[in-house]
Structures are given as structure tokens and as C-alpha cells.
């Protein structure tokens, strides 16, 4: 049976792992390659690396990091942050990334999704969407969730799928950093509307939040950062807990 995926997210700045609380005020949580290897050994199903510096001059650093991760890690990983062209994606995939994720650049130029899907295949194109509830509507935000766009979230996810995205990484900015649980109602609405997988992100604080997002939220995968980095929840404990609660998960025998 296909299992629900647990995905630790590593925010990267200058080659180091960081995690912002509500994306502001960063704390250092270690070496990305070492942390990634630990998560892989503990039974994480995939990893996501988000480069939050992502300036042009740092691009080579990220490619080098991807190469080191790919050489070391035996599970799939996605790289995102500041990706805006076929050339960016080509460099990251050639370095060994399995998937890339785009966010603001897809909003700015939606054709990028089509171009990437055509060039590299939908399976490696993840579209990340930061959403916030504003005056009664779910609105897509960019620039780390700070800047609202004109796009409403539900129509945007449908467009993204039609353009060839292979997966959606949905982050609720209302929930991110709160540790009060994932945005299950919205995640469920989106997951049911799409035929591609949806990764729930933002709000994980306790193990039962993961159960909720896989049941009430109909999520295919769940992503979290700080609770894993600061060892508030360990991946093996979480997997056991999910299994006890009848959520299909991969537990190595």
C-alpha cells in the first residue's frame, strides 16, 4: 500500500540549516548534509531543502551542496528557493536533486511550469504555494509569505496542475510557526480537487497533528522543520505513532 510521507524540511542559508519562526528570526540547526543523513537513517521518506538566500552569487554554493547531499543520501530530495529558469533547474537536477520546487517565479511567470514539465517531466516539478486567509479568502502570497498576490489559492492550484506540476507543497502562513496543527480544511479541499499529490506544510507541533492532516486534511505527505530539528518529535516516534493510529507509513523492519 502506498504510504503517507514524512518530509523534514531544511532551510538553508550560506550552506547551513536554519529555521525561521514565522520566517523571521532565524536559529541555526546544523550542517545540512549531516542532518539530512540523520533523517534518512531515521526513516524520513523524503527531504526538502529550501535555499532562503538564493542570491545569484550563492547559486554555485547551492549546486555544490546538492551534489554533496546526493552523494550521501539514499532517499529522494527536493530543492527550492530562488529557482526561476530552465538553466537553474538543469544545474540542480544534474547535481543529483530528484525534484525542484518553484514558488514566486511560478506566480510571476506561470508558463515556467509548462516549460519545466516539458523539459524535465512533471514528476520533478513541485510548485510551492504560500497561502494566507485574508478578508474571507485564501490568497496566494510570495516573498516568503509576506507579499499578497491577486491570486486566489484554489483556482491557482488547479491552474498549476493543468500546467504540468507534479506535486503541490502547500504552506499555510496562518498556521506556519504556530505549532497548532496543519490547515486541514484547506488542504483537504485542495487535495480532493487535484489528481496530483499534496504536501501539507505549516503548523506541526504534536504527533496527532500529522494524524489529523492525513485523515481530515487528506494530505499525501506532511512537511515540518523545527519540531524535527530541535528534536521535539523524532521521525521514528512519529512513524510508530502514525502506525498505531492506522495511518499507512513506511517503517523499516
Amino acid at each position: 500500500m502506498l504510504t503517507k510521507r514524512i518530509i523534514p524540511c531544511l532551510d538553508i542559508k550560506d550552506g547551513r540549516t536554519v529555521k525561521g519562526v514565522n520566517f523571521v528570526g532565524l536559529r541555526d540547526a546544523g550542517d545540512p548534509v549531516e542532518l539530512a543523513a540523520t533523517y534518512a537513517a531515521e526513516g524520513a521518506d523524503e527531504l526538502v531543502f529550501l535555499d532562503i538566500t538564493a542570491t545569484v552569487e550563492k547559486r554555485k554554493t547551492l549546486v555544490e551542496l546538492v551534489r554533496r547531499v546526493a552523494a550521501e543520501i539514499n532517499i529522494p530530495f527536493t530543492v527550492g528557493g530562488g529557482i526561476s529558469s530552465i538553466e537553474d533547474v538543469s544545474a540542480l537536477l544534474n547535481a543529483g536533486a530528484d525534484k525542484i520546487s518553484i514558488n514566486s517565479s511560478a506566480v510571476k511567470r506561470p508558463d515556467l511550469i509548462n516549460e519545466l514539465a516539458l523539459e524535465f517531466g512533471s514528476q520533478c516539478v513541485v510548485v510551492a504555494i504560500d497561502t494566507r486567509f485574508v478578508e474571507g479568502e485564501h490568497i496566494v502570497h510570495v516573498r516568503g509569505g509576506r507579499t499578497p498576490t491577486e491570486l486566489r489559492t484554489i483556482p491557482w492550484v488547479k491552474e498549476v496542475e493543468q500546467r504540468g506540476a507534479g506535486e503541490i507543497l502547500l504552506t499555510s502562513m496562518d498556521h506556519d510557526g504556530t505549532k497548532a496543527g496543519f490547515a486541514n480544511e484547506l488542504t483537504s479541499e485542495i487535495s480532493k480537487a487535484l489528481s496530483i499529490p499534496v504536501i501539507a506544510s505549516g503548523g506541526a507541533g504534536q504527533m496527532n497533528h500529522f494524524v489529523d492532516t492525513f485523515t481530515d486534511g487528506n494530505a499525501d505527505a506532511a512537511l515540518a522543520a523545527s519540531i524535527f530539528h530541535f528534536k521535539e518529535i523524532s521521525v521514528p516516534d512519529l512513524k510508530s505513532f502514525l502506525k498505531e493510529n492506522n495511518i499507512p507509513v513506511r517503517v523499516e523492519k
Binding site: 500500500m1 502506498l2 504510504t3 510521507r5 521518506d45 489528481s195 496530483i196 499529490p197
Partner: peptide
């Protein structure tokens, strides 16, 4: 179901030297 199948799933009824020394 969602297409593509993306993620971890079981191998069943394994019958090949490819699958020596694997868990069930």
C-alpha cells in the same frame, strides 16, 4: 487514485535473486 504514484510502496510476492536478504 492520484497519478503519478509518488512515494513508498511494498514489494510483494518477490521471486528473484534481486530480492535476496530483504525484509518481508
Amino acid at each position: 487514485l492520484k497519478v503519478p504514484q509518488m512515494g513508498w510502496n511494498n514489494l510483494e510476492n518477490m521471486n528473484s535473486p534481486l530480492f535476496a536478504d530483504l525484509p518481508e
